[in-house]
Design a protein around this nucleic acid. Structure first.
Length: 484
RNA sequence: CGGGACGUGGCGCAGUCUGGUAGCGCACUCGGCUGGGGGCCGAGUGGUCGCCGGUUCAAAUCCGGCCGUCCCGACCA
């Protein structure tokens, strides 16, 4: 397997801006320098380059396995949706109307009805579900699709907010409200586990406030992650759609009692935005840091040779590479002769490779190799015999350590506000998550947003009683933050 | 969509104020020496200066319009 070099070919060896100095500039530079993505000619469009796509592929596989394990199957639905379909659910149209891309012409003919490029697939899928569902015996329908969608965004950033997005959208149908709610929460848990176990990102889960709810949903649940700059990122959502769509699209089935009733639906999505989260949560001044389970390359071997013993070192490095591959590790051997070892060290750190394996004349003499971990920079010398085993253990340690560090960061940046002044001070000076009681009204939610730019990220499942900091009325716990 | 900044080889920039025939660093190509934290020397390739129009003997430079990018707001996965 071979990915493009991060800096060779066309990119300049610029010094990466410090994350703490200008995190936005840092992010944009890193995306391009590490060859994750490149800008397209239409605003908000991006090519995801091989290395970036390899990360997405690993996320895809991980999620897909989890979906299959919870009984779901994959299918594919049309990209094009007639305008009339989109309009059937009132809230849904209103929510998406400002950002839908329309096809009005085909070849040289003007179309009779505008066709939407899907901004999400609820409506088109309902068309099929109406045809496919007749009896309670047809339920539940547990279908997922891997697809793209288009939303015409005003402000775009690679991975975080793009015009075209790759994602996965699950669309399920159930006989009862309870079952649909159960499914909604089950998939929220699947997302949470994927973030924690694979991306090493600790997310908070909970319910959205009504104003942040998905257009057309009864209830929206979310995974919120905290980025390195203290801002929150909505990283995946799961919606309980109730009967809103089944009524609008007239999906019905005969239940056990011979009654014709509308089923209950859910939808849930996880997009390439997660790659943005990965960069922002783990990245540092030296570049990316990819958790081993996600890393396209778990370990890169950098041979260190001098003119006289080049062939000997090369042979040893190749042998080592074969051993690592045989042990099932995703290893890469960097035999490039153009660059110095130091150059390669920097480059592989930029790309976030979890472990670097150095092998040079001194190591060959001592029958050892040097392991350097990306997350801590720690170096260790390991005898050649036990190398694959030690590496496997080390990768597990790195995976866990990255999760631990991210969790510590999140916890250290989650603060309780005792007064509105304190609330404002935290958001202005420290950012992060702020825990405070909310009286449940749109007024206080909006007031906070106007004053501080912070929004309710979620309402946790366990909420304590308290007093709203603004209105003084009784309230319950909400989590606030400035969001991406 | 409002406020601000910026568009010059692949990337980062200088030149614009004061018009005069485009330059630097890195990347890229070739050769040689190097190689344990972004090596060195030499020789090269590459740009109708975002687009359209205007002023002028002459425009990267002045004027007008448009497009795009980034930052700050409003809207969102």
């Amino acid at each position: 397997m071979h990915y493009e070099r991060s800096v060779r070919m066309t990119e300049a060896v610029e010094k990466l801006t410090k994350k703490s100095e200008d995190s936005s500039k840092w992010y944009l530079q890193l995306v391009r320098m590490a060859k994750l993505a490149d800008y397209g000619p239409v605003r908000g469009t991006f090519a995801i380059r091989p290395y970036g796509f390899a990360i997405w592929e690993r996320i895809q596989r991980d999620l897909d396995d989890r979906f299959k394990a919870t009984g779901h199957v994959n299918a594919y639905f049309p990209l094009f949706i007639p305008e009339s379909y989109l309009k059937k659910e009132a809230e849904h149209v209103e929510g998406f109307d400002p950002e839908v891309a329309w096809v009005t012409t085909a070849g040289r003919e003007e179309l009779e009805e505008r066709i939407a490029v899907r901004p999400t697939s609820e409506t088109i899928i309902c068309e099929f579900y109406r045809r496919w569902i007749h009896s309670y015996r047809d339920l539940p329908v547990l279908v997922n699709q891997w697809s793209n969608f288009v939303r015409w965004e005003k402000v775009t950033r690679p991975f975080l907010r793009t015009t075209e997005v790759l994602w996965q959208e699950g669309h399920t149908v159930h006989a009862t409200a309870e079952e649909a709610r159960e499914e909604t929460l089950r998939m929220l848990g699947v997302y949470r586990d994927c973030f924690a176990e694979t991306l090493s990102i600790p997310v908070l889960t909970g319910q959205k406030s009504p104003s942040e709810r998905f257009a057309g949903a009864v209830e929206t649940f979310t995974c919120e992650a905290l980025m390195g700059d203290g801002r929150a990122l909505q990283s995946a959502t799961s919606h309980d759609l109730g009967q809103n769509f089944s009524k609008a699209f007239d999906i019905t089935f005969l239940d056990e009692n011979q009654d014709r009733v509308h089923p209950f639906q859910t939808s849930w999505g996880f997009s390439t935005r997660a790659v943005g989260a990965l960069i922002l949560v783990h990245g540092d001044d030296r570049g990316l840091k990819i958790p081993p389970k996600l890393a396209p390359v778990e370990a890169v071997i950098v041979p260190i040779w001098r003119g006289k013993n080049k062939s000997e070192v090369r042979t040893e490095a190749q042998k080592l590479y074969t051993e690592l591959k045989a042990a099932g590790l995703r290893a890469e051997l960097d035999l490039d002769e153009e660059h110095s070892p130091g150059w390669k060290f920097n480059e592989h750190e930029l790309r976030g490779v979890p472990v670097r394996v150095e092998i040079g004349p001194k190591d060959i003499e001592k029958s050892q190799a040097v392991l350097v971990r990306r997350d801590t920079g720690e170096k260790e010398f390991v005898g050649r015999g036990g190398l694959p085993e030690r590496l496997t253990v080390l990768l597990g340690e790195i995976q866990d350590n990255m999760m631990r560090q991210a969790t510590e960061f999140r916890d250290a940046n989650t603060r309780h506000a005792g007064s509105y002044d304190e609330f404002k001070e935290i958001i202005a000076e420290k950012r992060g998550f702020v825990v405070a009681p909310w009286d449940g009204t749109l007024e206080t939610e909006q007031k906070i947003k106007e004053d501080t730019k912070a929004t309710i990220r979620l309402l946790p499942f366990e909420r304590e009683d308290g007093t709203d900091l603004i209105s003084g009325k009784p309230g319950k716990t909400a989590i606030f933050a400035r969001a991406y």
